[in-house]
Design a protein around this nucleic acid. Structure first.
Length: 254
DNA sequence: GCGACAG
DNA sequence: ATCTTGTCGC
């Protein structure tokens, strides 16, 4: 038998990944499960995690994964870890999780072993939750695999079937007057997959919030807004800053 | 058919 | 994601 062509094995891999997403999706919980999620000021919430991967210009293999934990409501960094990792999956829209999640999960595990008392009560992931082709983005993967509440926040919109065309979207974005204003993003099934949020007064461009695991969209949106000193929620922003700083020192030595 | 497409 | 400084404005 002839070996499968690159294109054929690529297709097989994607089908396999799709099945994995459908399988994991059965374990996802799309509503609030924690006490702190039920009151206006999130009383009982003390630690929020933020995760991110930073890449290197022409390097397809090396990257830096970071996990930070911030205090709430102060939003001060109380834990930080950066780790160089070797990427083994390409970036394909709809399959970001297979590229990044393994390292994010490992980072959470290391913290679990190192100091369980610092484990975050909710994690912000850089990317989408159910605002996704199969309603199972990177924030869902991370949430289910760690069984921690997880919120997906994307800085750019992933085009999912059913979301309105560019023009209508642009108009809705213009209508976002004040920080905290938002509008829902509905999929072809009619289900609300996420919200576009004007995260702070200054920003023109919204961020896209969606449920990852163990949290409702309403709670996710409120918490996200309360974590925004700037456009990007502080947990993700700090993780981002620290991982790229780590690379700048590790790689810019020559 | 072509373009678009989280990071 | 990444390549990149200054600059206009509150």
């Amino acid at each position: 038998m002839a070996a499968a062509s690159e294109g054929e094995s690529q297709e097989l891999l994607l089908r396999q990944w799709e099945r994995r997403q459908v399988e994991l999706k059965q374990q996802m919980i799309d509503h609030d499960t924690e006490d702190w999620q039920n009151n206006e000021v999130f009383e009982g919430l003390e630690r929020i995690g933020g995760m991110d991967l930073s890449y290197i210009k022409g390097d397809e293999v090396n990257a830096c994964a970071s996990l930070v934990v911030l205090s709430y409501p102060d939003l001060k960094v109380v834990y930080e870890e950066c780790q160089m990792v070797c990427l083994n999956a390409p970036y394909i829209p709809g399959f970001l999780a297979f590229r990044e999640t393994p390292f994010l999960e490992e980072a959470v595990r290391r913290l679990q072993d190192k100091d369980p008392s610092l484990l975050p009560q909710v994690i912000f992931a850089d990317g989408n939750g159910i605002l996704h082709h199969r309603e199972f983005g990177v924030a869902c993967h991370l949430g289910v695999l760690t069984d921690l509440p997880c919120i997906g926040v994307a800085k750019n919109l992933l085009h999912v079937d059913g979301l309105e065309e560019k023009d209508l979207l642009k108009e809705k974005v213009k209508d976002l007057q004040k920080g905290g204003n938002a509008f829902s993003l509905t999929g072809s099934s009619g289900k609300v997959l996420g919200m576009a949020l004007k995260s702070c007064e200054k920003s023109t461009k919204p961020i896209y919030v969606s449920v990852g695991h163990r949290i409702s969209l309403d709670t996710a949106l409120r918490l996200t807004h309360s974590c925004c000193k700037y456009r990007v929620p502080e947990p993700i922003r700090q993780a981002d800053i620290r991982s790229r700083e780590y690379i700048r020192e590790k790689v810019h030595i020559p």
